[in-house]
Design a protein around this nucleic acid. Structure first.
Lengths: 116, 116
DNA sequence: GACCATACTTCGCCGCACGAAGTATGGTCA
DNA sequence: TGACCATACTTCGTGCGGCGAAGTATGGTC
């Protein structure tokens, strides 16, 4: 009975979440994603290549992203990925979930900011 | 203060995050945490026991939580855990990080709420 | 007496993050 | 020219952590 899968736990991890988020702004190739994620996360999330390409494979296998096109720029191959509708829906749902999760804590510990 | 760890990736996963969040309201024992987390997450996060006790061990080893006391209620042992200062600092930092991460997406896809 | 609920323990699998090394190409610079 | 670095992607191995499942113990229910 595999059916459910709903399960409640995060469908994607933080690195994966940011990959999807980066693609909201349009198709990007691997290294482009790394740089874009760095910007989106305000320098916090530096995707290691091993993480990136592993995640891209899994996301594509799940149909959350797809290969948009492949180019060769100055002899170097570039594979551009785009978000699918499923991917867009998922990253949006994740954002909402994170917002709710964050509020669980913020509403308790920092109604003002009495901390640190 | 172990907390540092900058690195970028999530210091804790979602189940672990909710365990810490549950303890913000005061010490709880294992099964009490499971129930409290279920409430905090609006029914979304159902902690499996395997996840719970494994996570509690790791959190205690890292000094993020500590054993408050042990009771025996009706012959059944209960071990109460409380949040340490480090644990409180970490869950607060995580909340902020999630909020920022969520906003990356929400500001792009649902400026109003034109979705689903 | 069988069975269920509470409470916690332990085991093992597997998915995933990620460091590291490898391949290929073009540009820089001494 | 040859050493070296940057871009771009591939592949591998390790290790951590989530989680299903089975196990132990006790008290209450029927």
């Amino acid at each position: 009975m595999v059916v459910g899968m709903v399960k409640g736990s995060p469908a994607v991890s933080e690195p994966t979440y940011f990959i999807l988020a980066a693609l909201l702004d349009g198709p990007l190739h691997g290294h482009g994603i790394i740089k874009h994620v760095l910007g989106l996360s305000e320098g916090r999330v530096k995707l290691p290549v091993g993480t990136l390409y592993g995640a891209l494979d899994r996301l594509a296998a799940k149909g959350l992203i797809a290969v948009e096109r492949e180019e060769v720029v100055e002899g170097r191959p570039r594979r551009y990925f785009r978000l699918t509708d499923d991917g867009r829906a998922l990253v949006t749902a994740e954002a909402r979930r994170m917002q709710q999760a964050a509020s669980v804590v913020t509403s308790r510990v920092l109604p003002g900011s009495a901390f640190t």
